[in-house]
Write a protein that binds this DNA or RNA. Structure first.
Lengths: 343, 343
DNA sequence: ATCTTCAACGAAAACGCTTTCGGAGTCAAA
DNA sequence: TTTGACTCCGAAAGCGTTTTCGTTGAAGAT
């Protein structure tokens, strides 16, 4: 029946439990023949290992924890599902589990880390939403909890991380505006506590600098990562004596807010003022004109994150040897155009 | 140090391991005094139980699996994060874990169920995206896997589920249009394989029937649950000799598509044609005019789902005794208005 | 024939906890 | 004094694996 244990297989083949176990784990002191027999019996009996016994005996939880980003109450990350699907895909291949953790606050998160470091219920963690100066890198390192960060921080050089090349993305975006003929290019950035905010500012600055365009401090506006944030920031830009003709926005959500502000001023996004967002949100295509943006392959990122953590835990690689930069891709829709000559 | 085990506590108090264990589990054959001592030592030594040992010994995984909905490749459920946060919140309170499962297809999902029924690695499952005639209810019941469904099905009477009162919601929505003066009210529904599609149709029909408004079959359009789906469906409605003046849409996404169609026909959403969506997507507020819709308290739903499953597993309640209907709430924004008299 | 080598397996301890069972001790009733 | 009931605790088995170590038998070398 569903009598599923090593013992039943052992009895079935007149072998010992330990032999069966080692056969399944591909030990080299088990003959090929025996391994074949065992594997056949496994499928025949529909054996499924008891992971709790495995984990207790081996000492390895084979279980990865994903810390859901809390970002002050509102978490409506549209990529969460895809990200976790990517992780799960990579993990199920090797029989690991994905469990989710929710931290309500920073203190709560740290407390959670401490418990984990004692209980050792998880092989490692994946954290996201990294800050410019993210204390979690040091805390987790000190607690000796293996982890991979989705996003970098100032002090991440000896840790393992995967990040988009934010600087490159916004460098490219700005260069793109320049090649379209724009010279007055503003940037609406996110709160500077986030590392990606700073990186994106850098990219924007670098492109302007390289082209010899003077960087006007008025053309850099900080915004909350929300629709309203984008609207307010754009309002400010439109109060300047001299408008920008193009605006690179830190996110699609912010760009949508900016577009509404533009319309409120009786201007047309993509005409008088070009703009681009970032994230590749589907809904950007639903509005008129559809928002140009940049995307990243989220599912792949999730898979990579999981695989990196497994490398860290299983193959005991050095964290600093596992760092990966992925590139964002242009998704031109309707809001990146040449500046109007009449304007 | 981090020498954290029952044994260390036992040694510390000159008690036996079994006494400590029973003290922690609040057995009644342990004196109050001993319990107090044990609990104090626990916090003093910072003891964290080894969940794998616990689960192996007790036989209860204390672990809940959430099956991420696959819906043909694209899964961008904006509520996923909130839903899981709700679940996790309820579970951490009682020390349970939440692990996620991804099924790539229906066959894949069934295979996964079968494995689970043997390995018993999970205490139970939460499934979502239920179909009108969802085979999973019978499969899981037959496999004796405890589960709670987020959403109903035709054959769910003896199972445990939590669902929104879809019929009520769309009944209310339609009645609302009627009270605004509309008489020509169409409905764009989702694919009829989904149970909620049928329920929402029912609600719409019921309100019309009650009011004595004849139900025109042309006024019911099936759409994919996407922006394009909504657009196409609305296009069809606008090809009719006689337009509807109000349209109730199965989802916000579909409603957004419908709005674009309306604009493409040089009409104004909320003026010539009122419409409402469903889901309460934030982005509905970002467009002009902002989309009226209906919402449900997702985090609470997640928490309830988890608690129901715990009741099912721990307190061994009958599945049919755990069924819960929650109500959706109006979120009036800008697209539900009285019909234009001049139209 | 003896000794070594090696492949292939079994025995048994260990992982850290739960749970059953029995026993020691106390106290009151007979 | 004996009996019974009751409280509180310890011993020990067990959960299903993994992993170390020792053993067996056969093959090859001398």
């Amino acid at each position: 029946m569903s009598n599923s244990s090593l013992k039943s297989i052992a009895k079935n083949l007149s072998l010992s439990v330990s032999t069966v176990s080692r056969a399944l784990n591909d030990y080299k002191d088990i003959s090929q023949n025996t391994k074949k027999l065992v594997n056949e019996t496994v499928v025949e009996l529909g054996y499924q290992p008891n992971i709790f016994a495995q984990r207790l005996a081996s000492g390895n939880p084979e279980c990865l924890g994903f810390v859901i980003p809390w970002r002050d109450g509102q978490l409506n990350d549209p990529f969460l599902g895809e990200l976790m699907t990517g992780m799960s895909t990579a993990l199920t291949e090797i029989g690991w589990d994905l469990t989710v953790l929710v931290a309500k606050s920073f203190e709560n998160e740290v407390e959670l880390f401490k418990k984990l470091s004692i209980s050792k219920n998880l092989s490692g963690l994946i954290i996201s939403r990294t800050l410019r100066n993210d204390k979690r890198f040091k805390i987790l390192t000190d607690l000796k909890i293996p982890f991979v960060a989705h996003g970098r921080s100032l002090n991440c050089s000896s840790s393992s991380w995967l990040d988009v090349d934010n600087e490159r993305a916004f460098y490219d975006m700005t260069k793109h505006f320049i090649s379209l003929g724009h010279r007055k290019i503003a940037h609406i950035c996110g709160p500077k506590v986030y590392n990606f905010s700073m990186q994106r500012i850098e990219g924007w600055k670098k492109a302007l600098f390289e082209t010899g365009i003077q960087i006007k401090s008025d053309f850099l506006q900080v915004a909350d990562l929300s629709f309203d944030g984008g609207k307010i920031a754009m309002d400010k830009l439109l109060k300047l004596k001299e408008f920008p003709t193009a605006v690179s926005c830190v996110s699609d959500t912010v760009a949508m807010g900016a577009m509404q502000s533009i319309r409120n001023h009786n201007l047309s996004p993509g005409k008088e003022i070009s703009l681009m967002g970032y994230d590749g949100l589907e809904l950007g295509a639903w509005i008129d004109p559809p928002l140009s943006t940049m995307t990243q392959p989220i599912q792949t990122v999730g898979k990579d994150l999981a695989e990196m953590l497994v490398n860290l835990v299983k193959d005991k690689k050095k964290p600093s040897s596992l760092q990966k930069l992925v590139r964002a891709n242009f998704l031109r829709r309707g809001t990146d155009n040449s500046p109007m000559t009449t304007f």
